[in-house]
């Protein structure tokens, strides 16, 4: 067993896990953070995307022990209390989700896109989301959501300045 300590959604948490445990398993099974989903076994679907030290990562491609000492944000930690993150709000407002299963990964991935590119074009959004599969929406409304979310994030940033 290995002891893994991560700061997840602002809270320091330690767990003893088998060295082969994946980061997504640590989050779901040890820390009860079931918002991060497992949709495949080949790192294709992106349902498990979270942020590790601020960057989007597929939590199924990383061992829990590799995250020791890292700061992790999952979908549960994205909203500011009762106030949704602008990207979450944009997904709701543009019907960017249906069954909700790919949604956490999709939103986390989209937030990281906007961190890299504050005003992505439709094509840039589609290219970035290549690693996130959605079977429900046909991506049409996801693309719209990300555009709107990016605009809202730009606004928030300006306000903060």
């Amino acid at each position: 067993m290995a002891s893994v300590t991560i700061t997840v959604n602002g809270q320091k948490r330690t767990a003893d896990v088998e060295p082969r445990t994946l980061l997504v398993q640590l989050l779901r099974e040890n820390h009860g953070l079931t918002g991060t989903h497992v949709g495949c076994d080949t790192s294709q679907c992106g349902a498990c995307v979270i942020h590790v030290n601020g960057k989007s990562v597929k939590a199924c491609t990383m061992l829990a022990v590799q995250a020791d000492g890292a700061s992790v944000t999952t979908i549960e930690g994205l909203a500011d209390g009762a106030t949704l993150h602008p990207m979450q709000e944009a997904f709701r407002d543009n019907h960017g989700l249906q069954c909700g299963f790919c949604t956490p990964g999709m939103v986390m991935s989209a937030v990281d896109l906007v961190q890299h590119n504050a005003d992505p074009s439709e094509q840039e959004i589609r290219d970035w989301l290549e690693g996130n599969i959605c079977r429900c929406t046909g991506y049409h409304n996801i693309v719209k959501s990300v555009k709107a979310g990016a605009a809202a994030m730009r606004k928030t940033k300006t306000k903060k300045k």
Binding site: R28, L33, T34, G35, T74, L78, H95, L97, G100, F101
Partner: peptide, 22 residues
């Protein structure tokens, strides 16, 4: 009317309750 979905709040905040979450 394009009423925004009630179920989205839980799905967007990681509080959905799928079988494997149980």
């Amino acid at each position: 009317s394009p009423v925004r979905r009630k179920e989205d709040q839980r799905f967007l905040t990681g509080r959905g309750n799928y079988t494997d979450d149980i």
